[in-house]
Structures are given as C-alpha cells and as structure tokens.
C-alpha cells in the first residue's frame, strides 16, 4: 500500500514537473536574450484563468489552450514594450506583471470560482506499456503534453546550441553590442524571445489548470510555482535540458507534503511540511551561489541590462 503511494508520488512529481519545465523553459528563452521576466507567477495565473473561461464557454480544450497562449504573447509584449522599447527597469516591470496578472486573474475568475472543470486533460492510453510495474505509471502514465514538454526541452536545447538564430539569441544575452555591430537587431531578438517565453508561461498555467487542478482558485492554483520555476532557471544554469532534472526534483518536493498527509504521517504538522518546497529551493539557490558553482553556471552576461546603441 505504502509503496504504491510513493509510486504515485513519483508519477505526480513528473506530472507537476511539466508545469515547471514549461514555465522555466519560457524563462530560460526570455533570459537568454538578456531580458528577465519575473512575472512568471502572474502569467501562470492568467493562463490558467483564461483557459478555464474559454473552455467553460466553448467546451473546446484546444481553443482554450490557444487563447491562453495568445494571452501570454500579449502580456509578455507589454513587458517587452516597457523594458526593451522604453528601457524601463526589468525587475520592477516583472513585479508589476505579477501584481497585474494576480489581480486580473482574480477579477476574471471571480464568477467561475469553485466551478468544476469543463474539460480535463487525461493521461494517454498506452495499452500494455501503462501496465508495466513501476515504469508504467511513472513513465507511461502521462498525457500528451507532458511528453511534448520533454521533447520541447530537447528542441529548445537544439535551437539554442545548434542553430544560427539560437546562437544569435545567446549572443544577444551575452554581448548585445556585438550582435548589433554584426547587423542583427537586438530589440527584435529580445521582443520575439520574450513573447515566445511568455506564451510558454501561460501555456504552463493552462496545462496546470486542466491537468492537475480541481477548480479555479486564485490563491491555491499556482501557489508560488512561478517563483520556483525562476529558481529552477538558475538551477539549470540557463540550459533547457538541465531544467528537466531540476523540475522533477522540485516537483517531488512539491508533492511530498500531500503524500505525507495521505499516509497520515503526523510527525510534522502539515503547515510545517508545506514550507519544504520553498526551503529546499532556497537551499539549492544557496548551494549554487558558492564561488565554485558560480563559475560553472554562466548566466547571460547582460541579463537585465537594457541595450542602448552608442552609449559608453
């Protein structure tokens, strides 16, 4: 019985990891261009609530996901307009996106609060594969989007390290002046990747809504997952494939409190156990900031810096 629950915990960790991977992929792509978008938490909420509202009125999952993605493009282009276009402070703009997204999602979601989900994303039926011991539920017990997400991480890695636009993307984050001197448009590269990143973030929120949440509830739907995704970016040292392992680790730490509750393990009160994901994330961040680790990390050198030609 107990081993069964831990098996489910593993499976759930991989499932939660899908949101974390999508959101942190979005953040990695954005940050590689030199733009930091702290608004992940707000974007997740907006993706979740718009997805829900569209699905509620049309009953169409695909349309809901599409609209959620478009909302991400619109929101992140506000961020890009402010930070790339108007050279506003990226940190403050990102925080404004969190506050704006939180408020707006709450406002939009008020009428549907507590309603049951109109559609859900179900795991794929993979026949005998799903019946395998251990591997069945953990590896083959997921929905289409989970597999696509893992593939997307591979795709993003290939794009960033093996293609020309990907090279330009990384160059824009590290040395925008060089890209500019070569005739590339720093502003365009930053706009495009901020928007793609934003689309991934709201998609992450919408997926979470349909695959994992029971109902829309602003306070509980994301619960800080967006911030954990941002920590994951550092953990992954801005490399998509490294985000996969980290996402499973963080996903596991998010799932364990529920498992302990299900097992009626009461050595620690649930409110204390609920702190663990955040404390573990913090501990990981600390380990990563030791001088030795920092040398291996390699953040985009001009992250957060607006690019102005001819300055200096």
């Amino acid at each position: 019985m107990n081993s069964n629950i831990w098996l489910l915990t593993f499976a759930d960790a991989i499932s939660i990891a899908t949101t974390l991977i999508l959101a942190s992929l979005g953040a990695i792509i954005t940050e590689r261009s030199g733009v930091i978008n702290l608004g992940v938490e707000g974007m997740l909420l907006m993706g979740a609530v718009t997805g829900f509202v569209v699905a509620d009125s049309t009953g169409n999952l695909w349309l809901a996901l599409l609209i959620a993605v478009l909302v991400g493009v619109v929101l992140s282009s506000i961020h890009a307009a402010l930070t790339v276009g108007l050279r506003a402070n990226q940190i403050v703009s990102g925080l404004a996106m969190v506050i704006f997204g939180t408020g707006l999602s709450q406002f939009i979601g008020k009428p549907i609060e507590g309603d049951p989900l109109p559609v859900v994303i179900r795991p794929l039926e993979l026949g005998w594969l799903s019946d395998l011991p251990f591997v069945g539920p953990v590896v083959f017990g997921h929905d289409l989007f989970t597999y696509l997400t893992w593939a997307a991480a591979g795709g993003a890695s290939f794009y960033m390290h093996r293609t020309r636009p990907g090279l330009l993307l990384r160059a824009t984050g590290d040395a925008p002046a060089t890209v500019d001197a070569q005739g590339g448009s720093v502003a365009r590269i930053r706009w495009v990747h901020t928007m793609v990143g934003g689309a991934l973030m709201t998609f992450a929120g919408a997926w979470y809504m349909f695959a994992r949440a029971a109902a829309w509830n602003q306070a509980a739907t994301t619960n800080g997952i967006g911030w954990i995704a941002l920590a994951l970016v550092v953990f992954a040292s801005w490399r998509p494939l490294r985000a996969l392992g980290g996402a499973v680790l963080f996903g596991f730490s998010l799932q364990v409190p529920f498992t302990l509750q299900a097992l009626q393990i009461r050595t620690l009160p649930p409110t204390i156990v609920a702190m663990f994901p955040y404390l573990i994330t913090l501990a990981v961040l600390v380990l990563l900031s030791t001088p030795r680790a920092r040398r291996l990390l390699g953040a985009p050198k001009m992250l957060g810096q607006p690019f102005v030609r001819d300055e200096r």
């Binding site: 925080l95 996106m97 506050i99 704006f100 408020g103 406002f107 008020k110």
Partner: peptide, 11 residues
C-alpha cells in the same frame, strides 16, 4: 480584485 488590477496597471 479590481483594486489589485488598478495597482498593477498604475505601476
């Protein structure tokens, strides 16, 4: 939530 929307928008 309209108050929070306004806050975010002001910023």
């Amino acid at each position: 939530a309209i108050a929070v929307v306004l806050q975010g928008a002001v910023l």
